[in-house]
């Protein structure tokens, strides 16, 4: 693959990410409009568990740094290690989220119980879904580098994955600030 192709794909992904930002903007706007509509069920401040949230946030942040460092690596071993570490941290992050969601549903605060809960589940869940897709991508790249080693096409794909993953961490900044931390001001 030529460097030409490199520019295309990276630029295409960049456009996709910007478009995805607008998608999240739509979800954030919805959340902001509906966040007071709790109808006697749990409200934002009930969902705030500072310590878990902090761990979750630091886990994702660390993974974002690791994938960034991985793009600089040359050897197959280091890259595989970086991908694996990011993957595991992503898994931990998703694990926390699933645990939170399951707990809420079990406590009778599922997404169907109020407009606030609907918007909460969908906003946070959409981010989680993106993280899951990123992890699937990591898995694929892991298999590729394991089978074929680092090729030019591979490093292009790794750069793209890193870009996507950084973007997810940036969205998370907005989520932990607006959805969780600011819920105490309500």
């Amino acid at each position: 693959m030529s460097t030409h192709q490199h520019n295309h794909s990276l630029f295409g992904l960049w456009l996709y990410i910007l478009s995805d930002c607008v998608l999240f903007a739509g979800l954030f706007a919805t959340f902001a409009v509906l966040r007071g509509q709790t109808f006697g069920n749990l409200s934002g401040s009930d969902l705030l568990h500072l310590s878990t949230l902090l761990v979750q946030t630091l886990v994702l942040l660390t993974s974002s740094m690791i994938i960034g460092l991985t793009t600089q690596a040359k050897s197959r071993g280091v890259i595989l290690f970086g991908l694996a570490a990011t993957f595991i941290l992503g898994l931990v992050f998703i694990g926390f989220e699933i645990q939170e969601f399951a707990g809420l549903v079990a406590a009778g605060a599922g997404p169907g119980h109020s407009a606030f809960l609907s918007s909460f589940f969908v906003l946070v869940g959409t981010h989680g879904l993106h993280v899951a897709v990123g992890m699937l991508w990591m898995l694929i790249l892991g298999v590729q580098v394991w089978l074929h080693g680092t090729t030019h096409a591979f490093s292009r794909r790794l750069t793209m994955l890193a870009l996507f993953w950084h973007f997810l961490d940036i969205v998370w900044i907005a989520i932990f600030s607006i959805v969780y931390l600011l819920s105490t001001t309500l």
């Binding site: 946030t57 942040l61 740094m65 960034g68 600030s177 931390l181």
Partner: peptide
């Protein structure tokens, strides 16, 4: 650049959490 960004981000995260924690 990744390490610098990471350190800054951790500090900013902790600051935000600290403010809320004090408040709560």
């Amino acid at each position: 650049k990744y390490l610098t960004g990471f350190v800054f981000s951790v500090i900013l995260t902790l600051l935000a959490f600290w403010v809320v924690w004090v408040h709560v």
